[in-house]
Amino acid sequence: MISISVQREDFDVGEEYQRLKADCRTVGGIALFTGLVRDITGNPLTSLQLEHYPGMTEKSLQATAEEALQRWPVADIRIVHRIGELKPGDQIVLVAVSGEHRAAVFSACEFIMDILKTSAPFWKKEVYRDGEGHWVEAKTSDQQRARRWQQD
């Protein structure tokens, strides 16, 4: 089962975990990744503004989750991504994968995050204390991580 949410409100990692845990008695493991807004710019970050195209974004996340289901024997995938204005330390994304074996859930979770970071139609603008801001592009290291899945 795949569940996708693109939302302004925060999410509760514990609730998401319990939902995945309750869904299937054959699950042997759940991998969770929670991304946070961080300030590593050198110019103090006041906020990160995330925009998306409704419909297109969910479709992209759904396709990525479906590909993960084709690659690995996992039971459930849950992706939550926030939009709007976020502050440093706020939760921005959750990827949770459940399955029978840890190797599959770890790989699927990592794959989803790598593809999400480079291909999902989100636009991020960092806004700094001095009033300046700029749009953030995928880092070279993120693009390299995503490309390695094309070789598998």
Rank of each mutant, 00 (worst) to 15 (best):
M1I: 12
I2P: 03
I2T: 11
Q7F: 06
Q7W: 03
E9N: 06
D10Q: 06
E15Q: 08
Y17K: 09
Q18L: 11
R19P: 10
K21F: 12
A22W: 02
R25M: 09
T26K: 02
G28M: 05
G28R: 02
G29C: 06
I30F: 06
A31G: 09
G35M: 05
R38S: 13
R38T: 15
I40H: 03
G42L: 02
P44R: 03
L45P: 02
L45V: 06
S47Q: 12
L48R: 00
Q49G: 06
E51R: 06
M56H: 07
M56D: 12
E58N: 03
S60Q: 09
Q62H: 15
A63I: 10
A63W: 04
T64Q: 04
A68D: 10
A68W: 03
Q70M: 11
R71K: 10
A75L: 06
D76A: 06
D76N: 13
I77F: 00
I79R: 00
I79M: 02
I79G: 01
R82G: 13
G84H: 10
E85A: 10
E85I: 11
E85K: 05
K87Y: 12
I92G: 07
V93K: 00
V93R: 00
V93Y: 00
V97H: 01
A103R: 09
A103D: 15
A104Q: 05
A104F: 05
V105G: 03
F106W: 13
A108L: 01
A108E: 02
C109F: 03
C109S: 08
I112L: 06
I115P: 00
K117F: 07
S119N: 07
K124I: 11
K125I: 09
E126S: 05
D130C: 02
G131I: 02
H134Y: 08
H134N: 11
H134E: 15
H134K: 07
W135R: 10
V136D: 01
T140W: 05
S141V: 14
S141T: 12
S141M: 08
Q143W: 02
Q144C: 13
A146S: 11
R147I: 14
R148T: 13
Q150K: 02
Q150M: 04
Q151M: 07
D152R: 04
